[in-house]
């Protein structure tokens, strides 16, 4: 039996995004130099949502996407699926890149994203924003902005949308 447990509702997600937007603005003393990049695919909607909040509170920032399928450390271990593209709308040289993903788990995708970003230029800094930090890191990577810390077991799945956050546990009957 599959168990689904909703841990955040739509209002919780909205409040978390607003708080993270404030934190990003505060940390960087404004957003003059900030570029928000959502990780394909789960981070894209969150980058849009964060960008919209930042625009509402301060001023609009460039929003883009980053695809890591050619930078992963498990190439050759998994089936190839046609990737999504990176879309970096502006020169990121000397900028502050806020890398956005929905869930931070092992950290391996973030590692790949750091490599992928450096192919586009050398930002002054890269910061990491995630809606859910579920632990189980396998690399020395930590987020700068967190929506919610969510202790999980590594067998569980975490499903994140703008409508909420759900823990899915594949149980045995």
């Amino acid at each position: 039996m599959t168990q689904r447990k909703q841990v955040l509702g739509p209002d919780d997600v909205r409040r978390a995004v607003t708080r993270m937007a404030h934190e990003i603005i505060e940390r960087n003393r404004g957003v003059d130099n900030v570029v928000v990049l959502g990780m394909q695919r789960g981070g894209v909607w969150l980058a849009q949502a964060l960008g919209a909040e930042i625009a509402r509170i301060a001023s609009p920032v460039p929003i883009g996407t980053i695809d890591v399928s050619l930078h992963r450390d498990d190439v050759g271990l998994r089936p190839v699926t046609p990737g999504t593209s990176s879309d970096v709308p502006t020169d990121i040289q000397h900028s502050i890149v806020v890398l956005v993903d929905d869930v931070l788990f092992t950290g391996r995708t973030v590692r790949a994203a750091l490599d992928a970003i450096s192919d586009f230029g050398r930002p002054n800094a890269i910061q990491l924003a995630v809606l859910i930090d579920r632990g189980h890191r396998e690399l020395p990577i930590r987020p700068d902005f967190i929506g919610k810390n969510l202790p999980t077991s590594s067998e569980e799945e975490v499903e994140v949308t703008a409508e909420g956050v759900t823990i899915i546990e594949e149980g045995v009957d």
Binding site: S69, L70, H71, V75, T81, P82, S85, D115, D119
Partner: peptide, 23 residues
């Protein structure tokens, strides 16, 4: 699938650094 992958690779080719570590 290969046509979709080609589209992905074409986007890689337009980047400032068109080389990726995949293989």
């Amino acid at each position: 699938r290969l046509l979709d992958l080609t589209d992905h690779m074409a986007a890689v080719g337009r980047r400032p650094n068109p080389k990726v570590p995949a293989l």
